[in-house]
Computed example of a mutant assay.
Amino acid sequence: MSKKPGKGSTPSNRPVTDPLTDSLTAYSDADRAAAMDRFRVLQPHLEIGVPLTAVAEASGHSVRTLHRWAARYRDGGLAGLVRRGRVDAGCRKLHVDLTQQIEALAVQKPRLSVASIHRRIAESAKAEGHPVPSYATVRRVMDALDPAMLCLAHERYVKQLQSGGLSDVRGRPISLDQNTIFYCYIVADIVGKMDTWTYSWQRTADGRGRIYRPNSGFHGSIELLGWDQLIGDARARNQAFFDKAGISGESFFSNG
């Protein structure tokens, strides 16, 4: 017999299993296990409306903690129950101005190395009186860039090319016809935020990459290539070259 919800109980009105939000494949084994442990604690409340006060008494967790978990589950399903670590854990707090400078430099074309960006940020930090961030901190900010920024960086670069605001390596202005077709590429592992953000993009002919074609602004496309795909294709092309040249013996590229 199901227990009726008690006073003050607010069971979730979302399905216990929601295929759109309950995917934990992007998380580690430890994160998945922790999320499932939290779900099992909440399960009596979610399924039959057992008051959180009763769940707290049986589980040993505080009512406040259970309310927070339940809210996260309502908003994000099982993924909402994954432990949330501090993004700045283990490192000094980075001034927001420096963070914005790092992000702006990271999406510039041609692309700058981490070392180059770190040197510029170190100079900026000293000039502005901020603590100088470490190389690892700069790298973390760059790695955490939203995929949307990478796409916008490509579009911004194309706009600069179309407007004649850029110069070639000899300092001469680049002049392009407005009907010029642009092919832009992003090389990145298609996982996590990158997978989620580009989910609606068209798939490439081989089904391994993704492609975005803007409806206006410029003619062309922005193609997302997985790192493994890029390396695999490069190896295949080089192997074909060696085979065509009649070079015998085991190829360097066949060693993985």
Rank of each mutant, 00 (worst) to 15 (best):
K3P: 04
K3T: 04
G6V: 06
K7N: 04
G8W: 13
V16I: 05
D22Q: 06
L24H: 06
Y27F: 10
A35E: 00
P44Q: 05
P44T: 13
G49T: 03
V50L: 11
V55W: 00
A56Q: 00
A56R: 00
H61A: 06
T65H: 10
L66F: 10
L66M: 12
A70H: 05
Y73P: 00
D75T: 14
G80C: 06
V82D: 01
V82L: 02
R84C: 11
A89C: 04
T99V: 13
L105K: 02
L105T: 00
L105C: 06
P110H: 15
S113W: 15
S113C: 09
S113A: 07
H118A: 12
I121F: 09
A122D: 03
A122N: 05
E123W: 01
S124I: 07
K126H: 04
A127M: 02
P131A: 13
V132P: 01
Y135I: 07
T137R: 10
V138P: 03
R139C: 04
M142S: 09
L145H: 11
S167E: 10
S167R: 07
D168G: 10
G171H: 09
S175F: 06
D177E: 11
D177M: 06
N179G: 03
I190A: 05
K193A: 15
M194P: 03
D195V: 13
Q202R: 06
R203N: 15
S216K: 09
G220M: 04
S221N: 09
S221L: 12
G226H: 07
W227S: 11
L230E: 02
G232I: 01
R235S: 06
Q239I: 02
A240N: 06
F242R: 02
D243F: 03
G249V: 04
F253Q: 00
F253P: 00
S254D: 14
N255I: 13
